[in-house]
Nucleic acid binder design. Sequence first.
DNA 1: ACTGTAACCTGCAGGC
DNA 2: TGCCTGCAGGTTACAG
Length: 305
Amino acid sequence: MSPDGAGPEAVRTHRYRGPVPELPEVETVRRQLEALLPGATVTGARAHPSPKFAEAPRAAGHRIDAVDRRGKYLLLGLTPATGTTAPAGTGAERELVVHLGMTGGLHVDSASSSGTGPPRAADPYERASWDLDDGRRLWFRDVRRFGRIAVVPAGDHRGLPTLHHLGPEPFDPELDAAGFHRALQGSRRRIKTLLLSQRPIAGVGNIYADEALWRAGIHPGARRVGLERAGRLLGHLREVLAESLDHGGTTLRDYRAPDGAPGDNQRRLDCYGRGGRPCHRCGATLAARALDQRTTTWCPRCQRN
DNA sequence: ACTGTAACCTGCAGGC
DNA sequence: TGCCTGCAGGTTACAG
């Protein structure tokens, strides 16, 4: 660990550990699942006993009608599948909420893969699975168990505080500099910490927070940001998220090819993980330090407090 | 109501 | 070689 974060001896090499799902990755998953799941009915389910996953079986007996996303949360719309007599819109709809956490992933096994070939060894990191009426299986794998599964009445997110108080989607056309500035002004916390809270804007994680603050020239520890700088930050947040989304298709492994190439996970980053290395803009040595217990990288020259 | 802190969890890297 | 320690991350519970 570096004593002062300055000087060449403070170099910390960034070790890539695999895709941490942030908004672009979650949106990519959503698009893939949207092509696979709607219309399928959940006939059975099981889950790891941890309360983080134990609600998964409550999706059984429901048809998946939609695959939506809010921030980093996947929202699968469910309708009771018991008989066709129930009129639509009776209010019994549920929602399967999935947060991928750090290491979570959703997978769809094709019907054919379950019938032929040798039986697959049980995956020790499987946390929940749902049988579909067409023979396929949807399952959730999460090594570190930072993910979360909930089945709630549609739209009732009281049990998930962050989702309940989630800020606007980054690309919501109604979100503008003035509104973003107002949201930032409502808190005295550090701007970086505030972004990670998901309240001013949804879907921003550690990587994109550092990148956008670097581009905007805003110190991550700032507790006040003016209107103009807030507008610039919003623009840069949209930029980094959109750029990542453009590469999202190559970020994820193909579900159906478990042995497939991991794909190109390289992401061009100017700031995150580059502590001790020269700033791409001014050449100063980037600082890396824990800010509110979250690793934060910034340029002490470009990003003044 | 708000703010800050610890906990959750496990593979991996680095030090000795 | 192998054990031990610390780190990474988003969210939540809890204390002040």
